[in-house]
């Protein structure tokens, strides 16, 4: 099985501080992966590199069967190539309805002229409604996103990511600030999504990671410290020293 995303030997320095230090990471086309690590381990910077927000000093980031380099592409091009990203803080367009938020994300022609002459088909409407049902917002389609609860906004954002039909989903702390019931729903959504695509979840919360029941990558000081099942990495002495033992 060839990797969908292959990051190798990547280093990023901010004002002399090495945020990412010779990092290598690989994920297959339909895989769920949790990335954990203490604050400052480079989790967010890692996502910034993959999505094109930050350009690394050295290293390679290769994508897909043809191993295209993501380093020469803009954020929008990377997103169109099939990388979706969910931020820690829910970022939905509060001024617009749930329906419009989902429609905006739907995988369609994204050029200004294409969008200008876009007419919504019955098919697109059905697709948006199906997505809303999946994230549990079927009866909220007409509401403004600003009126949703925190958990609902998180789901809407996940729904928008699914609407993009990405091949790789990067999710930053999806369970932050959620109630136990909302966490369970979020876990289901992510596990379900990972059946057909690669999903990388960055998370602090060990309990949430345990529930995802997947391979875990531990980051520390900008490089991979350990990789394997959660039980495997939690037995690793280095991991205990830098992270769990504190």
């Amino acid at each position: 099985m060839s990797a969908l995303l292959e990051v190798s030997g990547v280093t990023v320095t901010f004002d002399g501080f090495r945020a990412i230090n010779d990092l290598s990471f690989e994920i297959g086309p339909a895989e769920l992966r949790a990335v954990i690590g203490p604050n400052g381990a480079g989790k967010t910077t890692f996502m910034d590199i993959v999505t094109g927000k930050t350009k690394p000093d050295t290293g390679r980031v290769l994508w897909g069967e043809e191993s295209r380099s993501l380093l020469r592409m803009s954020e929008a091009e990377i997103a169109r190539a099939g990388v979706g990203r969910k931020f820690q803080r829910p970022t939905v367009f509060e001024d617009q309805s749930v329906f419009d938020n989902l429609l905006l994300a739907l995988r369609k022609n994204r050029s200004p002229f294409g969008v200008l002459f876009y007419r919504r088909s019955a098919e697109d409407k059905a697709r948006v409604e199906a997505l809303a049902a999946e994230i549990g917002l079927a009866d909220q389609l007409g509401r403004l996103a600003a009126e949703l609860s925190h958990g609902q906004k998180q789901w809407l954002e996940i729904g928008m990511l699914l609407a993009q039909e990405p091949r790789l989903l990067l999710v930053d702390e999806p369970a932050a600030g959620m109630t136990p019931a909302e966490r369970e729903h979020t876990t289901d959504l992510l596990v379900q999504a990972a059946k057909t695509r690669a999903v990388v979840v960055v998370e602090h919360d060990m309990e949430f990671v345990r529930r995802l029941d997947c391979k875990v990558t531990v980051l520390h000081e900008g490089r991979v410290l350990a990789e394997g099942s959660l039980d495997h990495v939690t037995r690793n002495q280095e991991v205990i020293d830098v992270y769990l033992g504190r």
Partner: peptide, 25 residues
């Protein structure tokens, strides 16, 4: 009024997010 308006209002409110949706802001 259409989807174009939806995109440009989204750019007004959160430009970075629109970029990650794949629109060339």
């Amino acid at each position: 009024s259409g989807k174009f308006g939806s995109v440009i209002r989204a750019i007004r409110d959160d430009e970075a997010r629109v970029r990650f949706l794949g629109y060339s802001v």
